[in-house]
Structure formats: C-alpha cells, structure tokens
C-alpha cells in the first residue's frame, strides 16, 4: 500500500485514503468550440501509458477532498513528488533505469 504525501494536508497518508484520478496535466481547452474534432477526441480518449516516470492525479477523497498531482515511477512504485493542483511539473531526481 503506497504512502502518499498530500500537499494540502502536508502529511503522509496510506493509499486507502486516496483515489487515483487519471493522467495529470491534461489541459481542457479554454475554448472547446475552437478545437478540431480530432484534437478533442484525443483529449477525451488518448492517455499516455508510461513505463517509468508518470505524472498522475490523486484525490484525497477520505481526507481533505482535494485533487493534486504526483510524479510516480510506474515500475518501482516510488513516488518522487506530490504537488498542488495548478502547479507545474517539478524537476524530479530519478534513479538511473536498471
């Protein structure tokens, strides 16, 4: 069970307090009507499937209820950073790939 540090509660909590909320930094266009059908379909349905460092969202659903972002290695399950919604991707030091 992962230990996840909620950037709002500023404390590490077990995974069962959270719910995974999909890929992070998937921006919804400010003006969807100006987006092509193709680009909108990609926004709806296409997501990255990363082996290694992935950026994803979690929600502290059984805690403060906030959505936040997380940089996690999908192979080792190591969490490198968690950061608030709206903040940019941080620079994470990752271990060299085996």
């Amino acid at each position: 069970m992962l230990l996840i540090s909620c950037p709002y509660c500023e404390t590490e909590r077990p995974e069962i307090e959270f719910r995974h909320a999909g890929q992070a930094h998937v921006a919804r266009a400010a003006d969807p009507s100006a987006v092509s059908d193709e680009a909108w379909t990609e926004f709806l349905y296409f997501r990255d499937n990363v082996k290694g460092l992935a950026y994803e969202r979690w929600r502290h659903v059984y805690g403060c209820g906030r959505f936040f972002n997380c940089a996690r290695d999908t192979v080792s399950d190591k969490i490198f950073a968690t950061y608030k919604a709206g903040e940019p991707r941080p620079n994470v030091e990752t271990e060299a790939a085996p």
Partner: peptide, 13 residues
C-alpha cells in the same frame, strides 16, 4: 459531487 469538485478545483478554480 466528485465531478463537480474535480472541475471546480482543477478547471474553474
């Protein structure tokens, strides 16, 4: 409620 919170917190803050 989850959908509302999602959009409120991350799209329309």
């Amino acid at each position: 409620l989850n959908q509302m919170e999602d959009y409120l917190q991350t799209e329309f803050p």
